[in-house]
């Protein structure tokens, strides 16, 4: 099943995230990724929902019924700029230090904090790039990791 990306413009009102997620889960569908944040318009937020829905049409219609949902656009994966952010805390020691830093830098990850025995990297990129970076770091011992939801914009007008 291929992924579907919905860009949902909503009114910035309390409970709107709960309404959207409960509408999706109520119909028995899963969400791969969901991110929400403000837009350039005051009082409007945008949610980016990544799902693997067979019945994406039905979910779109159900979401459209929510009073606080203003507009839903399904993004065409071929015309979409998509990005995701990751913070990864990895353990380091004298032996591994150089190798970790080298691999991080080759992956375009930025070091945001370094301690005696750990380093935190930040990486922004496609989900695949983030997956790859995670795999690279794994042998060194990932202490903690967090990924933000995927966000996307259509690359044409």
């Amino acid at each position: 099943m291929s992924e579907r990306i919905l860009s949902v413009l909503v009114e910035d009102k309390p409970g709107v995230l709960a309404r959207v997620s409960s509408t999706i889960s109520r119909r028995g569908f899963n969400i791969n990724s969901l991110s929400v944040g403000p837009t350039n318009i005051e009082g409007r937020s945008k949610m980016t929902i990544v799902t693997e829905l067979d019945a994406v049409e039905q979910v779109k219609k159900q979401l459209n019924k929510l009073v606080n949902v203003i507009k839903i656009v399904e993004l065409d994966p071929n015309m979409t700029i998509e990005t995701e952010v990751l913070l990864l805390k990895v353990s380091i020691n004298k032996d591994s230090q150089t190798s970790v830093i080298e691999k991080a830098s080759l992956s375009n990850a930025t070091s945001v904090d370094v301690g005696q025995d750990f380093a935190i990297f930040e990486l922004t990129g496609s989900s695949k790039e983030l997956d790859k970076f995670e795999a690279l770091m794994k042998p060194f011992g990932i202490i903690e990791m967090v990924r933000g939801g995927r966000i996307a914009l259509q690359s044409n007008l």
Partner: peptide, 14 residues
């Protein structure tokens, strides 16, 4: 109440 009635109403307010 708002949470409990979310799936049982067309819309609700607090």
């Amino acid at each position: 109440t708002v949470g409990l009635s979310m799936a049982a109403t067309k819309h609700n307010y607090l």
